[in-house]
Nucleic acid binder design. Structure first.
Lengths: 153, 153
DNA sequence: GACAGAACGTTGGCTTTACCAACGTTGGAA
DNA sequence: TTCCAACGTTGGTAAAGCCAACGTTCTGTC
């Protein structure tokens, strides 16, 4: 007869040692965030990395595949598959760079821009769901701390 | 002639839209932490989840496989493989619970305890590496915020 | 100008983590 | 006793991350 609340996370009780570990905490929060984002984006049949690529193209402009990979820290081979998906859906165009024919210049199409606008809303909803327990200033502080870690790497 | 420093992360420059997203930030920091932890644990041929399981057994005591899975939010089937690894290395023992013969009671062995002590040091080193850019109070605050998110889920 | 090495896109493979579905066994409740 | 739940187990899928190798194209150097 467990006296825990009857919910899907019944019994969840990680040891204190783990709950004190920053790498464990970030991994666990990231997992939760990923679940929320995946559920949101799945409504449009998109993956998290599709959103990442589209966002980079929209904000930072066209780029070769290799440059895109460096900007986002995504492996060339993984990016290849992602771009194939996006190109297949007409959200992105790949064209050989005539000034350097090794390169494929990736461009956001008009449908791509439209799709991204839709995904943007999905993503924002997921952020709110994840950060619901935090106040506005706590959210800001969390962002600052995480950025500080990333920036110094 | 790029004027960037010659390092392995050359060109890393994610769009501001992503750098503002909590789910993206936590995922990125978690990825970095995972790399550090994996590199540390690999020296002992262990996986992150091996450490998780051993830690739970050490701190929270023996448990059935199902209960272990609920505590750590690890799927039964994934846990099965992890326990097979650990049992194969003699770090863990599985014994049928005679009071409920559906259950396998998992116990930490003496070699398991020894191995965990080794892994503990590896893990702590990885924490320091990840949090290097933060002050002591910032580390504490980050932990608090992440725990608040997890606890309320 | 020829040559060696680097960068590029591409293909293929492997690992970890995360889920889900189904089976036979065992226990508990109606 | 019967039905359902829980358990361990097996098998499968998918996302993500990472690495090695190939042929093509550029670039720097001799």
């Amino acid at each position: 007869m467990p006296n825990v609340i009857d919910d899907e996370h019944a019994g969840y009780d990680p040891p204190a040692r783990l709950r004190r570990l920053p790498t464990w905490l970030t991994a666990e929060v990231a997992r939760q965030g990923r679940r929320l984002v995946n559920a949101s984006l799945a409504q449009d049949g998109a993956l998290r990395q599709h959103f990442t690529v589209l966002t980079s193209l929209a904000e930072q402009g066209p780029a070769s595949q290799a440059e895109l990979g460096r900007r986002l820290s995504i492996d060339r081979s993984d990016l290849h598959a992602l771009l194939a998906d996006l190109e297949g859906n007409g959200l992105v165009a790949r064209a050989r760079d005539e000034r350097d024919r090794r390169r494929n210049v990736v461009t956001l199409t008009r449908p791509g821009r439209t799709a991204l606008a839709r995904l943007d809303k999905r993503i924002d909803a997921a952020q709110d769901a994840l950060l619901a327990p935090l106040t506005a200033s706590e959210r800001q502080e969390l962002g600052r701390l995480l950025q500080k870690i990333l920036h110094a790497s």
